[in-house]
Amino acid sequence: MAAQHHDDDHDPNLAHHFESTEQQRQSAKLGMWLFLATEILFFGGLFVAYTVYRGNHPEVFVFGAHFLDTALGALNTVVLIFSSFTIAWAVRAAQLKQIKLLKWLIIATMLCAFAFLGVKYVEYSAKWKHGLLWAGAYDPHVEHEEAFETIEVEGELHTPEADVEIIEIEEIQPVAEGEIVEPVVAEVEIDPAPVVADPDSSTIAPAARGPEGLAGPVEEADHDLVPVEPLNARVFFSIYFMMTGLHGIHVLGGIAAMLWLLKCLRRGDFDGGHFTKVDMVALYWHVVDIIWIYLFLLLYLID
């Protein structure tokens, strides 16, 4: 009988093993922060791989970053920062019991998450199309006939050694441009011209070619020139897809968590001012944002 009475006036949002709502909230928070710490370490392994490989083979990263569109990367950064803002605002709304506002802020955050994945889809499909993929799947190629025409024109140049390298440039260059703008053909003719016109004046730093060759200091490379594809350029794309892929999965997880929040909201969980669930999802989402801030810098903004 006593137990029955206890259940009746017990706060449904307070689990039995907690003294108070505040204690429950603090426990949830600590658990969440521990989880976020493991998330940092989870991505940490990839950051270690990135750092060690870039430290030892900078030319691979300078080369690979040419194929990432800074504008799209920056757009995604802006989208994620804005979504961080909306979810932070959502926590405030939950704390102040502004349920209607809370609902719209969660939806806005979700829309940003979808926008992020949409941009990512555009980027991924461009790389897929041109074979700029991970490890064994790496097989760069162009599909536009125009690009091949250019190769022929410029292929007249000297020495077998130079020939080989120039063709590599031509095969790659249009791809990089194609990711940024739709009309590829016009760009193709203008951009590679300075590289090819006078091969003797090329200031391309020698790429590391294993035992017989050595990478020049990256800083000396002329930024306007497209670097010759270094050995193991595929490693850049392996790291790129692993890091952005794992991050993308986290964005999907965030969307799932926000759908759950909307379900809780409908059920009226937040009516009494219990904002812990919103708070936890927001913390998770901010970590996704923080990781992207670093990914954007480290993958897109090389060179």
């Binding site: 922060w33 710490a37 940092i40 370490l41 270690v48 750092t51």
Partner: peptide, 20 residues
Amino acid sequence: NAFVFISAFAFLALFIGFAL
């Protein structure tokens, strides 16, 4: 909570530093 989070970064820095 901040201590927990920052310690993750500290250990990551150790990890990266030693690997390098």
